[in-house]
Every structure is written in C-alpha cells, then in structure tokens.
C-alpha cells in the first residue's frame, strides 16, 4: 500500500512487524466472566469498527472495538439464526444509537444495551436481547510473543 489511510482511532493497524514485539507498550483487553477478569487479547488485535470471537469458558463472546476505541462484549450467538456469528457483524449507528448489525439477516442490536432495534423476540419466541459482559482495557506486562494468559 502506498497511501496512508486516515483513522478515527489513533491506532496504527499496519504495525511494523520488524520491531521487537516485547518492547512495545501493551494494552490488554479483559472480560469479566462473572468471577474474574480474564485477559482475552491485546487491544492491537482489534480493528476499530470490527469484532472478534472470544471463547470464555464454554461461552462465546463477540468482542468489538468501536471507532472511538470503546470496547463492547456481547453474546456471539445471533438469536435469529442461532449461529454464532455476531462477532463478524458490522458496527454502525442508527440515529444516536451505536449498533451492531448481524451478518446473517441484518438485524441491528444496540451495542450498549444488547437490545435488538428491529424485533423484540427471535422466531423461537425467545428474547432478542443480547447478553453483555463487562469489558475493560488496561496496560499489561509485556508477554513474550505467542504467550497468552489463560
């Protein structure tokens, strides 16, 4: 790539891979699983406006970094299709509400409350509101490459 793209977030995605990794200041992303804060990845691994899937015990969490660097952790299961795909949805806004849009049938969910803006219930009658997990980022110890906290 020859052009520099502009970003909302002050995070370079084109990390210089030649730089020694351990020398960088690291920011860890942690999700609270109900009992502990669990480190799941580093902030650098999250592309603003996009999500990743996280395996939290037996549960799947969709973790997003919004363009203003806010972090959001919601259920990865799409209540309308039953598929675990919400981490692959797009972020955006509807009016003042920041939303996640399901990649399957495009329903929008309020990122802050998990509520579905299009329908209250899934076809099976269950609530279409997504569970949310507390999530935070904080400076972490530099870990050697490839080593992750459990």
């Amino acid at each position: 790539m020859t052009e520099t793209l502009t970003f909302d977030a002050a995070v370079a995605v084109d990390v210089d891979v030649a730089e020694p990794v351990a020398a960088r200041t690291r920011t860890a992303v942690e999700i609270h699983d109900g009992q502990h804060w669990v480190q799941v990845c580093e902030l650098d691994e999250l592309l603003p406006g996009r999500g990743v899937a996280v395996l939290l015990g037996a549960e799947q969490v969709a973790l997003f970094r919004d363009p203003a660097d806010g972090l959001h952790a919601l259920d990865n299961r799409d209540p309308f299709s039953g598929a675990h795909v919400l981490s692959r949805g797009l972020l955006g806004s509807r009016g003042p509400v920041q939303v996640l849009v399901s990649p399957m049938l495009k329903q929008a969910f309020d990122l802050d409350t998990g509520r579905c803006l299009d329908e209250d219930t899934a076809p099976d009658g269950s609530s279409a509101t997504l569970r949310r997990w507390p999530v935070r980022s904080r400076p972490s110890q530099a870990l050697p490459d490839g080593v992750r906290e459990p």
């Binding site: 052009e3 793209l5 502009t6 970003f7 603003p48 797009l90 972020l91």
Partner: peptide, 14 residues
C-alpha cells in the same frame, strides 16, 4: 488496494 487493508477491513460485509 486489498479490500481487507486498513480501514477498508472494517467496512466490508461478512
């Protein structure tokens, strides 16, 4: 450039 590079990666449908 490549559709997954930089900010474009966050725009693409799944």
């Amino acid at each position: 450039g490549h559709i997954l590079d930089g900010e474009q990666g966050a725009l693409q449908d799944t």
